[in-house]
Design a protein around this nucleic acid. Structure first.
Lengths: 184, 184
DNA sequence: TGACCAATCGGAGAGCTCTCCGGTTATACT
DNA sequence: AGTATAACCGGAGAGCTCTCCGATTGGTCA
């Protein structure tokens, strides 16, 4: 979407400044108040909330690039690997992303699980659909698996702790899900 | 737990009143402010928050009985049915519960997925453990499956919509999970 | 260039969450 | 019964989220 293009110059400056500040603040302390971000960015709360109507929207704005990369990764993986491997690698990558951004996980969770966030939700579903289709075509995956279902299920990634124990749990659960989509 | 016994008489009255009011309010409008509940119950916010330190805790307090019943159901089901059937029925029941209480789902989700809520989390894990053990013993389930993992995964139940489409989605995802724990 | 107007700004304010602590009261003990 | 004390109460208040709207300003066209 060309949303960034059609913004008025001052609005674009503000938007960028907010994102820049927000990225730093989130890194430092994920529970930062949006008020604080607005103040640090030199705008009023009204401005921040007009650009990003909710905390989730702001988080999504901040990590937009990373998410785009993740979406783009899906076709690349299916091109280079057999479907099962591609699916597993993509999930691993998603898990790693979730672990890194663990502090903002709650917001990400809400955002990804909610189809109101069209800018993020549907591309993500598309990526999963891609992976699933490859698996169906090769006969490796149970046919008819729904991509939205899988994204919903993968929501657990945003709730595991980022320590080694959580990593093990992630590993086990991804195994389970893969067993669930794999036809034997 | 005997927590209700050792309360001072006035505290118990307040606690019960709060729960009674909260049940009604939640039924009517899940997003009610806790302030409103406190006022309707005739206590100050301080009192409400001392009894239930968070919204999640209050929700758990309200549905405590139902959750206990759910936990008690697990052994009953394993006694009457083969492990796979027992597991499926228990999940169905949990799903139905989630669907009925959809308005308070977010709070329930946080509560069940968070082991800080020991009163609810561990009994729930215990119930799942029971179901899994039965399946392992009979050789139907993949050995070594962790009950906490499953509870985490089942968290999706609190995010599906309560309409027919959501019901279908629930059905599909429970199938997937069952395929994931079922050996062969 | 000047002036118009639609887009944008930003802060006041309503309502909420959650905490803190001085005042109150049930309970136990004599 | 009288009293000590630990438990409990409840409201003031700080800080947050989110909205609304009058003031402001960038873009455009004559």
């Amino acid at each position: 979407m060309t949303e960034e293009e059609k913004l008025r110059a001052d609005a674009r400056v503000n938007r960028d400044k907010i994102l820049e500040i927000a990225r730093d603040k989130f890194e430092a302390e994920p529970d930062v108040s949006l008020n604080a971000i607005a103040k640090a960015a030199g705008v009023g709360p009204g401005t921040l909330y007009r650009h990003f109507p909710s905390r989730e929207a702001l988080v999504l704005g901040v990590y937009h690039k990373e998410i785009e990369a993740l979406v783009a990764l899906a076709p690349a993986l299916t091109a280079k690997h057999p479907p099962l491997v591609a699916f597993r690698r993509w999930c691993d990558r998603l898990a790693r992303f979730g672990r890194m951004k663990h502090g903002v996980a709650a917001a990400l969770h809400a955002a990804m699980a909610d189809s109101d966030f069209e800018q993020t939700y549907w591309p993500m579903v598309g990526a999963i659909e891609h992976l699933l289709h490859a698996g169906e075509a090769s006969g490796d995956f149970v046919p008819g698996t729904d991509a939205e279902d899988i994204l919903l299920l993968l929501g657990f990634l945003w709730r595991v702790s980022p320590d080694p124990a959580g990593e093990m749990r992630t590993k086990r659960l991804l195994e389970l899900i893969i067993r669930g989509v794999h036809v034997r």
